[in-house]
Amino acid sequence: MGEDNTILGGIHISPNAVATIAYFATLESYGVVGLAPKNLTDGIVSTITREPSRGITVRYKGDDIDIDINVIVEYGTRINSVAQSVANTVRFHVEKALGLHVNSVNVHVAGLRVSDTD
């Protein structure tokens, strides 16, 4: 997927483009306060980033798109609901923009941000 052949030639949609759409959808999701790129060597969650493709991995497998998102969630929200909203919103926006089927959206809650405790 990500490729489409028309009589004029091919259309290729790079995983980066998909990641950018997912990035904006994620940041507008309520409860998400940031994305977390994984440091591959030790798996430590490092700084919050503004670069669209970091924290998001997009893979094509045959006809399917799989998206992995590492998010930081506001402490005190119901994490399960926030994660589900992210998955829903990302799937909706990617499918709407590209007309491609999204097989899975995996949301990894990489950390929490604590602004208040009560």
Partner: peptide
């Protein structure tokens, strides 16, 4: 908070959380 469902539910729970903090 425990029962928050969906995007709007999470926001509602945060509003109630803030309200609770305001009447502390």
């Amino acid at each position: 908070l425990m029962g928050a469902r969906g995007n709007s539910g999470v926001i509602t729970s945060q509003i109630l959380r803030g309200f609770s903090r305001g009447v502390h």
